[in-house]
């Protein structure tokens, strides 16, 4: 199988532990790819059935401007929604737009969640936009994005 580096760009690290450096060039020459590779556009098309998603202030995507550790980037998505049987958030999708497989997680919610919120931590293979697509029970899709910088740092 031909493989392409999962973490192209600044070649980060799918870290085993949090102490790994934010940047490593080790595997860069050998471009690896995985079986799940999917571009950002293809992923959004798959989620929305080709309809696309509209930017909305109802979606609050919280990610740091500068990642403390490219291997552990906290992401929180909150959506304004009453979460009733007739009006709720059906799913929250988190996407790392420049990872080889841009999909990180699809979260299917129900009115029993009470609040439309999901938080997790993702690996980023370099500076890129993190995006969320949100599916509402009325069949519409909303989105929000923010840039996250992954850096080796080193000044003070």
């Amino acid at each position: 199988m031909q493989r392409r580096d999962f973490f192209k760009q600044l070649g980060a690290v799918a870290a085993v532990a949090a102490i790994s450096p934010a940047i490593s060039f080790a595997d860069e020459a050998k471009k690896l790819s995985g079986p799940n590779d999917l571009s950002y556009k293809a992923a959004v098309d798959a989620i929305t059935g080709g309809k696309g998603a509209e930017e909305s202030s109802k979606v609050n995507l919280k990610v740091p401007e500068i990642a403390e550790n490219g291997a552990v980037v906290p992401v929180t998505v909150e959506v304004e929604s009453p979460m009733t049987d007739s009006d709720y958030v059906k799913s929250i999708h988190i996407l790392a737009t420049k990872n080889a497989n841009t999909r990180c997680i699809d979260v299917h919610l129900t009115p029993s969640n009470g609040k439309a919120m999901f938080a997790t931590r993702i690996k980023l293979g370099g500076t890129q936009d993190v995006a969320t697509v949100v599916a509402l029970s009325d069949g519409t899709f909303l989105t929000a994005t923010q840039n996250v910088k992954v850096t080796i740092g080193g000044c003070g």
């Binding site: 291997a71 497989n101 997680i105 699809d106 299917h108 690996k123």
Partner: peptide
């Protein structure tokens, strides 16, 4: 309550 499809980009 909730189900998730997860991929390899989630952190260790």
């Amino acid at each position: 309550i909730t189900t998730m499809n997860v991929w390899e980009s989630l952190s260790t």
